[in-house]
Simulated assay, not measured.
Amino acid sequence: MAQTGRPEATDTSGHPAVAIVGPGAIGTTVAAALHQAGRTPKLCGRTPRASLELRDDRGRVLVPGPVHTDPAQAAGTVDLVFLAVKSTQVRASAPWLAALCRPDTVVCVLQNGVEQEAAVAPFVPGCPVLPAVVWFPAEAQPDGTVRLRGEARLTLPDAPASRTVREALSGTRCSIELAADFLSVAWRKLLQNAVAGLMVLSGRRAGMFGRADISRLSLAYLRECLAVARAEGAVLSDEVPREILESFHGYPADLGTSILADREADRPLEWDVRNGVVSRRGRAHRVPTPISDVVAPLLAAASEGPG
């Protein structure tokens, strides 16, 4: 599996050596945070690029590349890999993980869903796999840049492997929170991601949640998801569905979501980890999921066809 060579030092500050696999919207945001702090990571992806660019209300950050595209030329292992590819791309990232990881490399998964460890661990035997909840809205733009519409923040489990991530990002624009009850935090974010899937089915952005009918549907869907989350062991209050809906009411009307961007670009959708999981886990716990049982097949069809 992984190489056993010495880690490649990307800076001389004593911070962990870092690689980012998947320099899309989330990966670019983390790369920019590291670069601004003088800790430019190794960039690994499918498309060669000379640099990455992040833009927000404060200006722009240009992260020097190149984006490496050949795992055979990884040039050594690292202390920390941020895996920022979509869940549909994990298997395709296996050669990068094999090239960059040694048995003690921490793999921090910046991905949607509540099943990151199970999905990634088979590709990095012996490595700590650390799920993360990503809270910042970052959107890839048509010109290849990334637009960040908020502060960058990650929530991690309160676990030993999280120390490596905290050390790597200490003093950067990307803040880290540790959660003793990470399961509840992850399911709360999944509720948010699940209801955002309705944007794909309507072809509209966040402004659609201002409609009374969509608000009613969303609230019913969120309550259904909440019942499944609780069956899984998440501790979430009755107010969480309304709080999430109110957050959508407060978003800019033109704010999209990654699954909508994938639909617009005719790419495979992360429907299963964001929406299908609710039906799957509901069946396991005998919790009825009538809305999920409609939403998930429609998203699957939008992702995979035929037709």
Score class of each variant (00 low, 15 high):
67 V>D: 15
259 I>F: 05
270 E>H: 13
236 L>V: 06
161 A>T: 01
30 V>Y: 07
266 D>L: 15
62 L>P: 06
301 A>K: 12
16 P>L: 05
253 A>Q: 15
244 I>E: 03
59 G>A: 07
221 Y>R: 01
87 S>K: 01
78 V>R: 00
277 V>C: 01
261 A>V: 14
42 K>N: 00
200 V>W: 09
51 S>M: 08
69 T>G: 06
201 L>F: 11
70 D>S: 06
89 Q>P: 01
157 P>I: 15
125 P>E: 13
257 T>A: 15
12 T>P: 07
3 Q>A: 11
230 R>K: 14
66 P>M: 05
115 E>S: 13
25 A>S: 12
154 L>Q: 03
243 E>S: 09
141 Q>V: 07
130 L>V: 05
219 L>E: 14
48 P>G: 11
297 P>F: 15
294 V>T: 14
200 V>R: 05
239 E>F: 04
187 W>F: 09
173 R>Q: 14
108 C>V: 04
188 R>Y: 13
191 L>P: 04
10 T>C: 13
306 P>S: 15
157 P>S: 12
123 F>H: 10
171 G>S: 10
2 A>H: 10
272 D>W: 03
41 P>T: 06
290 P>Y: 15
127 C>Y: 07
42 K>P: 02
299 L>V: 01
293 D>P: 08
95 P>S: 00
86 K>C: 07
281 R>V: 02
101 C>Q: 05
277 V>W: 03
100 L>R: 03
244 I>F: 11
38 G>Q: 12
198 L>N: 06
132 A>Y: 04
262 D>G: 01
269 L>Y: 11
274 R>L: 14
170 S>W: 11
211 R>Y: 11
219 L>Y: 04
259 I>D: 00
168 A>P: 08
291 I>W: 04
194 A>R: 02
121 A>M: 03
217 L>V: 06
33 A>K: 12
124 V>D: 01
184 S>I: 09
16 P>F: 08
263 R>Q: 14
115 E>N: 10
11 D>P: 04
276 G>V: 03
238 D>Q: 11
10 T>W: 05
99 A>N: 05
48 P>H: 09
175 S>F: 05
11 D>G: 14
271 W>P: 03
172 T>N: 12
106 V>Q: 01
237 S>I: 00
231 A>K: 11
46 R>S: 12
78 V>C: 07
68 H>P: 00
27 G>I: 12
